[in-house]
């Protein structure tokens, strides 16, 4: 089974500091890591390979440094890594990212399943997986928590929903996005690390993958960020006075304004 795993590099922490004057992110040489959700995707790929044989190719779009993170995937069991890196890819929103990945994956060619993490922790959109599936013209299943059965041209999986789960089957090739319940990612092995150290990550440009320049990067991105700002967070303790009923009422009113999602 030929398995492709899509990964993204993200800042090591989403506890970003904001420069209050300029309203921009302060990234003091923040360390970059593989998106945590993508580690489950890589692990699931490795487990599939262990069960069915085949090959795992990990692909990412990003700056040249992302090659290091692709190598980390090799250390935990992936066979190859491919980096899509080109100024023409820069400034991509999810739609343009899916176009770049689709072009890269089409160049790889032969694949049975594409695995992505549920979402990336920096953008939290979770859109690239389904958009990629649409671009490749294949079905997708999001939020997979368990692969029940997989055969040459068929997968049956459990998808987590807001109220429980559902069992879905679809033909392969397909894209699945995985949640962290699906597995526990392994640590690398020394042999894997040595293999990773020696690995050469091919870097593919937009021309290499024959990407349509109108569909990738800034040009291919319909959405545009026009403003960023820091949400107001009150760090001074506010003591709520009054009779007990009043205190409770005031508190709940304040908390409801935070508009935090309450599971039903």
């Amino acid at each position: 089974m030929n398995i492709i795993v899509c990964i993204k590099q993200v800042p090591a922490t989403n506890d970003v500091k904001i420069n209050k004057d300029t309203n921009t992110l302060v990234r003091d040489e923040a360390q970059s890591v593989i998106n945590p959700f993508d580690t489950y995707a890589v692990e699931e790929g490795v487990r599939l390979k262990e069960a069915t044989g085949g090959k795992i190719t990990v692909i990412s779009m990003g700056i040249p440094k992302v090659a290091d993170i692709l190598k980390e995937c090799i250390a935990v069991g992936a066979d190859d890594g491919i980096l899509l890196s080109d100024r023409a890819f820069a400034g991509a929103d999810t739609l343009a990212t899916s176009a770049a990945l689709a072009a890269g994956i089409n160049k790889i060619g032969d694949y049975d399943i594409i695995i992505c993490g549920k979402q990336a922790i920096d953008g939290d959109t979770g859109q690239v997986g389904p958009e990629l599936a649409e671009r490749l013209g294949i079905p997708h299943i999001t939020c997979v928590r368990k692969i029940e059965e997989i055969k040459e041209d068929y997968i049956r999986a459990q998808r987590m929903t807001d109220f429980g789960y559902e069992v879905i089957e679809c033909s392969l090739p397909a894209v699945i996005t995985v949640v962290k319940e699906i597995n526990e990612p392994r640590l690398p092995s020394i042999k894997g690390m040595m293999k990773a150290k020696k690995a050469v990550i091919p870097v593919w440009t937009a021309d290499d993958v024959g990407a349509d320049k109108d569909k990738i990067g800034l040009r291919g991105s319909p959405t545009k960020v026009i403003k960023t700002f820091t949400p107001e967070i009150n760090i001074n303790t506010e003591i709520i006075d009054g009779a007990p009923e009043e205190q409770a009422h005031k508190l709940v009113e304040k908390l409801l304004q935070l508009q935090i999602k309450v599971p039903v």
């Binding site: 989403n14 959405t223 960023t228 949400p231």
Partner: peptide, 13 residues
């Protein structure tokens, strides 16, 4: 929200 709610972004299409 982005970055786990640490930053808000306004986006247009």
């Amino acid at each position: 929200p982005a970055f786990g709610g640490n930053l808000m972004a306004t986006i247009v299409c």
